[in-house]
Computed example of a mutant assay.
Amino acid sequence: MFEISAQDDLKIDWAQMPTYNTIMALAAGVGLLLVVALGWQMMKDRPLATEGWAIAFAILGTILTVTGLHMTLTWPLAPGGFAFDNIIFGEPSLGFGVLMLGAAIILWRRGEIFAEASLENGGLRTEQARRLLWPISIFVFALGLACFGIAAAGWTYTLFAAPPQEPISGEFAEYPEVEAAFISGLYVLVGIGSVLAPFALLKLNRVLLGIIGVVWAIAGAIFTLFGALNYFTHIGLIVNTM
């Protein structure tokens, strides 16, 4: 799968190394940002065009579900020594994607519950959301624990390091702990928000909801920017190792 020439040039058989965590990172990052934005609008009793939110959630959820399911069920997706990527990227994407599809269905079929709630209705809209979302928040909690496990594995085994042939990220190839800490830190942020979700929804605790919004917004923005950057770095890696 990997070949090293006399000049120490890394060569990869890309026919055996499919990779698409670029689009997964973009969809996951934007998905987190949309969850935060929707929650903020609901807490502020802002008018909602629920069909638009449903379509956005459905599109991102479909991308994450399809790619995450393929990566989860194809073992190993990349037999060149990266089987752990199936777990690290595939399974969380699958879980998040299915959650977004579920949210899309709720917003599409029962959108009037949220769209019609206005300032004079007080907390009616958020209370309806709490009742609908609390049961599945237990799974969100479990995914948060999984994120902590992934972060711990990243730190322990110094995962995520890019080879020197990859533009930009490869500049840190001699310091693998840098990218390991960076990506693991993102999973920790997502995990913090996830494990707080059921407790925040139980009593609609605005402090906990605020913490969730902050950590997910930060993680979502970084995932989005990092995913966009990877379109350059991953293409560069492929070109440099063909």
Rank of each mutant, 00 (worst) to 15 (best):
P164T: 12
F199N: 02
I168A: 10
L99D: 00
F199P: 01
G111V: 03
N86T: 04
A115H: 11
F141W: 15
F114R: 01
L107G: 00
F139T: 14
E112I: 05
G170S: 10
L189I: 11
A200Q: 08
T126Y: 00
E174L: 10
G97S: 13
G193V: 07
A115S: 15
D85V: 12
S169Q: 15
V178G: 01
N121E: 14
G97R: 03
L143E: 08
D85G: 01
R131Y: 06
P163R: 10
P176C: 03
G154F: 00
S93Q: 11
A103T: 13
A146K: 07
G97M: 08
G111H: 02
L202I: 05
I88N: 04
Y187G: 02
A142D: 04
P164V: 13
G122E: 13
A142S: 12
S184T: 01
G191A: 05
F141H: 13
L186A: 03
L202W: 15
F82N: 10
A142V: 14
L101R: 06
A103H: 07
G90V: 09
I138K: 02
L202Q: 12
I138F: 14
G111M: 08
A115Q: 14
G185V: 06
L204G: 01
P198T: 05
I168Q: 06
Y157L: 12
I183Q: 10
E112L: 10
T126Q: 06
S93F: 10
V140F: 02
G193R: 09
P167T: 10
L145F: 08
Q165Y: 08
L186E: 03
I106V: 15
G90P: 07
G191N: 03
G154C: 00
E171S: 14
A129M: 13
Q165S: 12
P176G: 11
Q165H: 05
L189K: 12
L132Y: 12
A83I: 07
A129F: 13
V140I: 15
V188D: 03
V188N: 03
G90D: 08
L101K: 09
I168M: 14
A129D: 02
M100K: 05
R110S: 08
V140T: 13
V190M: 13
L201K: 02
L133M: 13
R110G: 06
F139Q: 09
E166F: 07
L132H: 03
A103M: 15
R131N: 03
I106S: 06
V190I: 15
G149D: 10
L204V: 11
L133H: 04
S169I: 07
S93I: 08
E177A: 14
A115Y: 12
L201G: 00
A173D: 06
L159R: 11
L132A: 10
R130P: 02
N205V: 09
C147K: 05
G95W: 02
F89P: 00
E112S: 11
E179Q: 14
L124N: 00
L101P: 02
P92F: 09
L196T: 04
W155S: 07
E171C: 01
E127S: 09
V98I: 15
I183E: 00
G123E: 12
V140P: 03
F84A: 05
E177W: 15
I138E: 00
F148C: 08
I106H: 03
L119Y: 05
A162H: 04
K203F: 02
S118P: 04
Q165L: 10
L196D: 04
